[in-house]
Nucleic acid binder design. Sequence first.
DNA 1: GTCTATATAATGATAGAC
DNA 2: GTCTATCATTATATAGAC
Lengths: 194, 194
Amino acid sequence: MGHGATRKQIVAAADDLFYRQGFDHTSFADIAKAVNISRGNFYHHFKTKDDILDAVIRNRLDRTEHMLVDWETSGATPKDRIKSYIKILLTNWSLIKDYGCPVGTLCTELAKLNHTSRAEANKVFTLFRVWLRNQFTQLGHMQEADVLALHVLSWSQGVATLGNAFDDYNYVKREVEKMCDWLDALSVKAEKAQ
Amino acid sequence: MGHGATRKQIVAAADDLFYRQGFDHTSFADIAKAVNISRGNFYHHFKTKDDILDAVIRNRLDRTEHMLVDWETSGATPKDRIKSYIKILLTNWSLIKDYGCPVGTLCTELAKLNHTSRAEANKVFTLFRVWLRNQFTQLGHMQEADVLALHVLSWSQGVATLGNAFDDYNYVKREVEKMCDWLDALSVKAEKAQ
DNA sequence: GTCTATATAATGATAGAC
DNA sequence: GTCTATCATTATATAGAC
C-alpha cells in the first residue's frame, strides 16, 4: 500500500466526491479521473472501495480534530468557541446548500447501506459531541453538558438539511442567530446560578 | 402504462426500498423481486427508473396530505395537532433508527445526485411546512407562523438524524419532551398576548 | 400483462508488462 | 508506481413470444 503523494491525492479526491455525489454513487473511474491516474494504478493504493472509504473517514476525523483544537485555542470563551461551531453553517453555506452537511449525509447514507464503516463515520459526530460537551462544562453546565451538546448538534443538523432542501440562506442565517441568542440566554442563567 | 394492482404493488415496494436502501442503490431487480414479477414485466409499467421515483414521490405526497388531514380532524387544538407531528419521531422510531427520516434522507440524496425530481421530493417538506404554519397561525402566532413552522421542522429533522446515528431512543424521547415543553411555553405566551 | 431472452454500458476487481 | 488489457458481475433498457 502506497503512502506517497498519489495516495493523499486519491483520499482528497474521494473525500470531495463522496461528499458531493455520495459514497455509493461515486465510482473508481470518477476518483481516478479526478486524480488523473488510471484505474489500474488505483488498485495499487487501495484494494477495495471500502478501503478508500475508511481512509476518507480517518481523514475527516483527523481534520475535525485539528479544527476543534484550533477553535479551542482561537476562541476566548466557551461561548465564543461554541459559536465557532454554529457559524460553520454560514461559512460553509455554499457547499451545504448543494450537498448538505458532510457528516450527517454520510452517516445516513451508510445507515441505509448498512455499511460496516457506519460506526466509524458516526465517530465524527462523536468528536463534535464530546467537544461541545466540554465547552458546556466549561460554561458551568456540568450536569446537562451532554444534553446541551446533543441539542446544538441536532439543531444545526436540522438547519443544514432544511436549508439544503429549501435553498434558503436567510432562513439559515435566522436560525444561526436564534442559536446564538439561545446560547447567550443559557450562559446568563449559568452566571446567575454561580 | 398500467394502472392496475401490479403498478400499485411496484410503487409500494419501490417506496419501501427507496427508503430503506436509498434510491440510487435500489435496482430494478430489487423491486421486481419484492413484487415477484420479472424485470421484463416491469418495463410495461415504468419506462425508466426516474418514472418510478416520480410515482413514489407522488405516492408520498398523497399519503402525507391524507395524514395531515387526519391530524387536522383528530386533534382538538392546534397544540395537540402540532404534537401529532412531533410524536412521529417516537411512533416511527423503529424505522428511523435504521433508515432515518424518509423525507430528509430522500431530499439529501436527490440533492447529491442533482436529480431532476429533487424539487418534487422537497414538496413533502413543504406540505409539512404549510400545515405547521397553519397550526401556528391558529395558535395566534400569525406574524411568525412560518418561522416557527421551519423551526419545528428543522428541530425534528436534526433529532431524526442524530437519533439514527447514535441509535439512542432516550435522547429522542428527551428531545420530543423538550419540543412539547417549548410548544406549551409558546402557546402560553400567545394566550397572554391576546 | 406477463414472460424469456438479449443488447449495451458501467462497475468493482485482477494480471501482468514497463 | 504506473500503465494497458481483461474478466466477472451487475445495471438499465429493449425485443419479441405467449
